[in-house]
């Protein structure tokens, strides 16, 4: 079994290649995993221990207190629910808007297409910090702050999804549409039944990424959702920290990190088979 390279060649080259890959994978594993393990380790250490020294003891003591403290906060579940609603809706919204627009930019002709696409690409260069004040004003004027709508809508204006989906649609072979057109299918039905299913890997990447962005967004919820009932998890956890959490609650903080990171990781694991799904068939060759 080899990687992408289905091509088994002379044995020596193949072996060197495999060793190189193994060494690379092992070092990446260490690079990525060590800080993560470090964080998980800290989350199971008593706060008092962390405030003193010698954090490199693997013998313990360990504790669940940091997690218990976290889950005793009843509002946490409300924030979790808010984050789920906001991130879920953002994913749905971004997927719909981006695949529609990406299809049109990637496969259809219409007046001003290239210029509109250029306009959309330009959006990638706009830093959030430079639009956040005006956005806040827009929602203030509408009296829409402290609502799910206000938390979801700004995320839908990000152009990355359109960019990704346009590329994905453009990469599909032309023959797909021709067959559909011969059958007299409408543009929408070509999009929906023929082309969209082919872009599932791109859609899955986009879904994961959108969920991630929305879940971890901090600045916009901070100034839009100002009532605790509307806090997102990321925002609420930050608010729950006292001024000097680094000193008094490093353990709780890292426990928060683990709890906040898990849902996104689960989403990734659920979606990743769509990204790398086709490989299975390929490797069986």
């Amino acid at each position: 079994m080899s990687a992408v390279a289905i091509a088994p060649i002379n044995t020596r080259g193949r072996q060197t290649w495999a060793w190189l890959r193994l060494a690379f994978c092992a070092s990446m594993l260490a690079f990525v995993l060590l800080p993560l393990l470090w964080a998980v380790y800290l989350s199971f250490r008593p706060n008092v221990e962390l405030m003193r020294h010698a954090p490199l003891k693997l013998t313990g003591p360990y504790t669940l207190d940091n997690y218990i403290e976290l889950f005793r906060n009843a509002t946490l579940f409300r924030w979790f629910f808010n984050s789920m609603v906001v991130s879920g809706a953002s994913v749905a919204g971004v997927l719909v808007l981006s695949s529609l627009a990406g299809f049109a930019f990637g496969r259809l002709q219409f007046p001003g297409r290239n210029w509109l696409y250029a306009l959309v690409l330009m959006g990638l260069a706009i830093p959030d910090q430079s639009v956040i004040l005006t956005r806040h004003q827009i929602f203030s004027d509408l009296h829409w702050h402290n609502s799910y709508l206000a938390l979801i809508l700004p995320g839908l204006s990000a152009p990355l999804g359109v960019f990704l989906m346009t590329e994905a649609f453009r990469a599909l072979p032309k023959s797909l549409e021709d067959a559909a057109r011969l059958d007299g299918a409408s543009t929408f039905s070509t999009f929906w039944h023929i082309l969209l299913p082919q872009t599932v890997p791109a859609l899955a990447s986009l879904a994961i990424y959108t969920f991630l962005l929305s879940w971890n967004d901090y600045w916009w919820p901070l100034i839009s959702a100002t009532r605790p009932a509307m806090f997102t998890l990321t925002e609420g956890m930050a608010a729950a920290q006292s001024n000097y959490i680094e000193v008094t609650g490093m353990g709780v903080l890292t426990a928060q990190a683990v709890v906040a990171g898990l849902p996104v990781l689960i989403i990734y694991i659920l979606f990743q088979k769509h990204i790398v799904g086709a490989v299975t068939g390929m490797v069986k060759l």
Binding site: F139, L222, T226, P228, A239, S242, N243
Partner: peptide, 20 residues
């Protein structure tokens, strides 16, 4: 009770701007 992250002035400015 609204508990906000330290020091809380970004939120306060936002609330004042939103008349809330």
């Amino acid at each position: 009770i609204n508990t906000v992250a330290w020091p809380g002035y970004n939120q306060l400015s936002a609330q004042l701007a939103a008349d809330d």
